[in-house]
Design a protein around this nucleic acid. Structure first.
Length: 480
RNA sequence: CUGGGUAUGGCGCAGUUUGGUAGCGCGCGUGUCUGGGGGGCACGAGGUCGCAAGUUCAAGUCUUGUUACCCAGACCA
């Protein structure tokens, strides 16, 4: 019986017993992605790229609304730029791709294929900024970056990935700090309302922060296997880059000053987050606001007179309401299509057959409640579908939130910490602030600090690891 | 980088132990009956077995070398 129930997903591995294989199967079988010929590279196929385009659209609107402009900086960076900030080069050197030759001719100076663009952007900023009147600079770029990773997985960690990186410059520290937190809040709001993924929001520890930043903040999501995924970061850079890159402005008081900077980014990794936060044994489950196809219409017995025409008429009604709609009148059987679009995570399916048409109704099935079918009146189709999509969006967030909340355990000592992180939970603990304790926990439990929440009301007085007086409250988890 | 594994039609695999006519499932094409949860029947196309060298009358199978990928560790959006 259990086997029988599983028939509809024979193409993908069991999500409970083999999560890693499930992930690989889903990204491949739903045609989000294919492997590129060079190790660690991925081809983002149309269905996957459509998700990225929707992410871009939603975020770009938010960036513009908060005063940012888009620009584009070159992919090649002189090697010397990377060396100007010592922590930065140390952090990225092992994984940068270098161009050493053009044809057979060695280059006088090696070129770095950008792993991130702080250095080249700062170099340009130093030319552009002269006066306090030039500030703030609020620029974002959509780009690809290259980091030659040893262990790669589609979307989660690839040698080349797509992202956006915001790079801002401010006259004062407080303004830059505000920008850092404002953009973090934009990410959190986007994740919540568009991706339907709840996030742990907080500051990274010294050990985990970005190479060259004063402070790094992150949003962290919980995947269905209890592991954590860093989904976005926002860095307060202070003057760490302004000084070595000699970015200066003449302030209104007549003195030259170094400005304060931020950078922030999210990547195609967000698609991985979507997959692993919402998926189930049938495959993908996409929130309506990000789904490339929001409603799929499937004609039943399409050869019978009037069926296909009636289905297309419904599609037109929905499309006019701005709903991303597809009619699948292909030659596959209805059952095949049901499974296919469920695997692809389409939020809402509408079946229209002779029986429906006779009754003036359509049969609908929600992806977030797959297996259940209801009928809606064709006369109120548009209103009902909009309401259903809304409800699916909300329901998916609540479901993910309940899941995450129920998988966060307070841990006061190493035993409790081990118990939490070994059983698909995050742990919330007090910590002395010492990197040695982080290292010990990582070595012994394979868990790392995720971030330190803004709510620092103490849970206790002792460090979860060494027992010494605790300074901060921090989340631990196993991470991707 | 350390340890283990794999490489055979588009995909997933068998065949290797004991050398002897390259097979299966899915997918793909044509026709037909179907169509409300991955349909049935009939016919058909498609592979110099990762690459290179060697042993042999004969190599997918044995030997040596080589490359790529996968899994588990150390590093990372």
């Amino acid at each position: 019986m259990a086997q029988k129930e599983k028939d509809f997903v024979k193409e993908i591995a069991n999500i409970d017993t083999d999560f890693a294989q499930w992930y690989t199967d889903v990204v491949k079988k739903t045609q989000l992605v294919d492997y590129g010929p060079v190790k660690g590279t991925m081809v983002i196929r149309p269905y996957g790229y459509a998700i990225w385009e929707n992410i871009q659209k939603e975020l770009d609107t938010r960036f513009k609304a908060t005063g940012h402009q888009n620009a584009y900086f070159p992919m090649f960076i002189p090697y010397s730029y990377l060396q100007k900030e010592s922590e930065h080069i140390e952090g990225f050197a092992p994984e940068v791709a270098l161009v050493t030759h053009v044809g057979n001719t060695p280059l006088a100076e090696k070129l770095v294929v950008r792993p991130t663009s702080e250095t080249i952007i700062c170099e340009m900023y130093s030319k552009w900024i002269e006066s306090y009147k030039d500030l703030p600079v609020l620029i974002n770029q959509w780009a690809n970056v290259v980091r030659m990773e040893k262990t790669t997985r589609p979307f989660l960690r690839t040698s080349e990935f797509l992202w956006q990186e915001g790079h801002t410059v401010h006259a004062t520290e407080s303004e830059a700090r505000k920008e850092t937190l404002d953009m973090l809040a934009v990410y959190e709001e986007f994740a919540k309302t568009v991706l339907a993924i709840p996030m742990l929001v907080g500051r990274k520890t010294e050990k985990e922060k970005f190479a060259g930043a004063v402070e790094t903040y992150s949003i962290e999501a919980m995947m269905l296997d209890g592991k954590s995924l860093q989904a976005g970061t926002s860095h307060y850079l202070g003057q760490n880059f302004a000084k070595p890159f000699d970015i200066k402005f003449l302030d209104s008081d007549g003195t030259h000053k170094h400005p304060y900077q931020t950078s922030w980014g999210v990547s195609t990794r967000l698609i991985g987050a979507l997959i692993m936060a919402h998926g189930d044994e049938r495959g993908l489950c996409l929130p309506p606001k990000i789904a490339p196809i929001q409603v799929v219409l499937i004609p039943i017995a399409a050869h019978k007179p009037g069926v296909l025409a009636a289905t297309k008429k419904l599609a037109t009604t929905l499309q006019k309401a701005g709903i991303r709609t597809k009619v699948d009148d292909s030659d596959q059987t209805a059952g095949w299509k049901f499974n296919e679009y469920e695997m692809k995570g389409v939020p809402l399916r509408i079946e229209l057959g002779p029986r429906d048409i006779e009754g003036g109704v359509a049969t609908v099935s929600r992806r977030d409640k797959a297996g259940q079918k209801t009928t809606i009146q064709i006369s109120t189709l548009k209103k009902d579908v909009l309401a259903l999509l809304d409800d699916i969006q909300t329901n998916m967030y609540i479901k993910a939130k309940v899941f995450m909340d129920s998988h966060i355990k307070q841990a006061k000592n190493m035993t409790e910490l081990a118990d939490a992180v070994n059983n698909k939970n995050f742990a919330l603990s007090m910590w002395c602030g010492d990197t040695a304790c982080e290292d010990k926990i990582k070595t012994e439990l394979a868990a790392t600090t995720r971030n330190m929440p803004f709510d620092q009301s103490p849970l206790g007085t002792q460090c979860v690891c060494c027992g010494k007086p605790a300074k901060t409250k921090v989340y631990f988890g196993k991470a991707y």
